[in-house]
Simulated scan of single mutants.
Amino acid sequence: MDKKFLNKTTNFFKKEGFYVILFVCLCIVATAAVLTVKSNKHNALMQQNAQTQEKVKKQTAKANNESSLNYDNALQVKKNSKAQVVVPKNEAKSQSVSNTASTSLNKPVEGSLARAYSEDPVYWESTSSYRPNLGLDIKAEIGKPVFASMDGKVEEINSATQDGVKVVINHQNGLKTVYSNLDEKVKVTKGQNVTKGMVIGAVGKTTLRSAYEKYGDHLHFQVLKGNDFVNPAKYVKY
């Protein structure tokens, strides 16, 4: 039986062997084609991904360069804007005039310096005590005219102070001037606008604090910067 089966098998392969071989070859070719197609698709996908990544890198680099350029330009513009500050000639001139006016005072009275400004206590014979002198005592005869040292507005008139009759002028530039030991008949009123050199009163003998000093009759002259007394010698010379 085995011999018959073997003979049948041999005859089958003899008659149908060509087709079997052809089928096997076709299967091999089809498998190879499928594998080739898959390989090509994979390679194409890899190449596309590589191109996409390269494009993204180029766009990122370009964006970074543009950002850096914009930042540098912004810094340059900011720097240039600071450097290009131009003050108009008229404004510069007016500022110069304003600064000069704010640091220059006319003499309030013709006379000589009797006692200088001192924040340290000094001896006063009139009261036999030591205390500061927050102004200038300018020796001048009774009745000598007293002038406004700068344009301004009369802020205060007080006849009941230790330094005698007092007039305060606000110059509206941060400075005030104070004129004390005036005659009771002052020439101005509170709230009045005055000009530099205008007569505001006369030297009197109304002080209680320094009525008996050796240098005699005088004008007590003070300068306020803000709320602080400062040395009038910075603004006027005797």
Rank of each mutant, 00 (worst) to 15 (best):
1 M>Q: 05
2 D>C: 07
2 D>Y: 11
4 K>P: 00
5 F>K: 10
5 F>Y: 08
6 L>Y: 07
7 N>F: 11
7 N>M: 10
8 K>P: 00
11 N>R: 15
13 F>Q: 06
16 E>R: 12
16 E>W: 12
20 V>E: 03
22 L>Y: 11
22 L>E: 00
23 F>W: 13
25 C>S: 12
26 L>S: 12
33 A>N: 08
38 K>M: 06
40 N>C: 06
40 N>L: 14
42 H>N: 12
43 N>K: 14
44 A>T: 12
45 L>G: 07
46 M>T: 13
48 Q>F: 08
52 T>I: 07
53 Q>A: 13
56 V>M: 12
56 V>F: 10
58 K>W: 03
60 T>I: 07
66 E>P: 01
68 S>V: 08
69 L>E: 06
70 N>A: 15
70 N>V: 10
73 N>M: 14
73 N>K: 15
81 S>L: 05
82 K>G: 03
88 P>Q: 09
91 E>Q: 13
92 A>G: 10
93 K>Q: 07
98 S>Q: 14
98 S>G: 02
100 T>P: 00
103 T>E: 05
107 K>P: 03
107 K>H: 07
108 P>M: 07
111 G>N: 04
111 G>A: 08
112 S>D: 03
115 R>I: 06
117 Y>H: 05
119 E>F: 02
119 E>T: 15
120 D>M: 09
122 V>C: 03
122 V>D: 01
123 Y>R: 07
127 T>P: 04
130 Y>H: 12
132 P>W: 07
132 P>S: 14
138 I>E: 00
139 K>S: 07
139 K>W: 01
139 K>H: 06
139 K>D: 00
139 K>V: 03
140 A>H: 03
142 I>M: 07
151 D>P: 05
151 D>R: 04
151 D>A: 04
152 G>W: 03
152 G>D: 03
156 E>M: 15
157 I>F: 01
157 I>V: 15
158 N>E: 05
161 T>S: 12
161 T>C: 06
162 Q>W: 06
163 D>N: 13
165 V>W: 00
166 K>H: 02
166 K>P: 00
168 V>S: 03
171 H>C: 02
173 N>Y: 04
176 K>F: 00
178 V>H: 01
178 V>P: 00
179 Y>F: 10
179 Y>A: 00
179 Y>Q: 02
180 S>A: 14
180 S>E: 09
190 K>I: 04
193 N>V: 10
198 M>L: 11
204 G>K: 06
206 T>S: 13
207 T>H: 04
208 L>M: 13
209 R>A: 14
212 Y>Q: 12
212 Y>N: 15
214 K>S: 15
217 D>H: 15
220 H>V: 03
220 H>E: 01
221 F>K: 01
223 V>Q: 04
223 V>C: 05
229 F>M: 10
231 N>Q: 10
233 A>V: 06
233 A>G: 02
234 K>T: 05
234 K>M: 11
237 K>G: 01
